[in-house]
Amino acid sequence: MRVETLTTLDDLVRLEPAWAALFGRVPAAAPFASPAWLIPWWRIFAPGRLATLAVWEGDALVALAPLYVETGPALRRLLPLGIGLSDHMDVLIDPAHAAAAGQRLAEAIGATRRDWECWSAEEAAPGAAVLGLPEPYGCASTWADHSASPVLDLPGSGDTLDAVIPPRKRRKWRMALNRVGRRDWRIAATTPETLTEDLGHLFRLHGARWESRGEAGVLADARVQAFHAAAAPGLLDAGLLRLWTLRIDGTVAGAYYGFARPGAAYAYLGGFDPAFAFESPGTLLVGHAIESAWQDGAAAFQFLRGQEAYKYEWGAVDRWTRRRSVVPL
């Protein structure tokens, strides 16, 4: 197996087809490890020196560590691409070559240890490949809990959502459906033709939701909006994006922005018009997302990091992401 070091945006773009194919062979990988997410992130932010490592066996990409070196005045850190805006970050390792490719990737990371003072693997989900990589040569690791990431485990095909959603929330969901049922309403999935418009609704409504609390919200940053606008077409084309808008009497009252892979769905952002609070757009959209994930056969609905009360109202329970910190000896 040979190792390639990628140091420019052009390198990442050139790698994209092989990266997408590898991502497709790793069923446990979250959308945040896909090229559709991480290449736009690097294009918009590029906060350091790119130091991504690719492991090849012949013409097949069998492992990838999307990394960069933070070049600020403080500690030189080796960090994952996507940090700050991503959850469930990980390296990608082809399951058919897991042991050999993982070993080779760990060796490659260890070989760069003079370039950094700490490699910090952030927001790794339980069971993430990066947590189980062999110790890089000349290094030592420590592990710690990182963030609470509530998860709703979904029932199998022989059961119903009533088995996992608490009765109080089921009643609130039914009440919201009854209230909106008196109006002309629909939830629609975005399409390539409506994507730009739907993202605009998401940005506007997310801002309105946070402004009603006297806060700005993550989308107040123009670069963050630019990133999502750049990433969304590729995510949609890859079948990863779940962007829905709720219209009530012709007005967009809410928007939901999440992702899905076989086996799991991920709730990322949302927003609603405070003028429609009586109809509970947030409940309607999250309920729709959970129901859609269950109907698609997902085993888990990931609410991602943050301990907001509404997540637990749906029956989610905390699962903690982990941080692996690696330092040269």
Rank of each mutant, 00 (worst) to 15 (best):
A63C: 10
A54P: 00
F45R: 04
L81R: 01
I93W: 07
V62Y: 03
L50C: 06
R49C: 14
T71M: 12
T52E: 06
D94M: 02
V55F: 05
V62F: 02
H88N: 12
A54F: 00
T52C: 11
V91W: 00
P73W: 15
L92S: 10
E70Q: 10
D90T: 02
D94A: 02
A51T: 11
L92Y: 07
A60G: 11
I44M: 13
V62G: 01
Y68S: 09
H88D: 13
T71K: 15
V55R: 02
D87G: 06
D87I: 09
W56P: 05
I83R: 14
V91H: 00
A54L: 01
A51V: 11
P47H: 04
W42V: 08
D59C: 14
A60T: 11
G82Y: 05
T52Y: 10
E57D: 13
R76A: 11
G72C: 03
L75T: 13
M89T: 06
G48Q: 03
G82W: 06
I93L: 11
P73S: 14
D59S: 15
L85G: 09
V91T: 01
D87T: 08
G48N: 04
D87V: 07
L50P: 07
G72T: 05
R49F: 15
F45K: 04
E70A: 11
A96M: 13
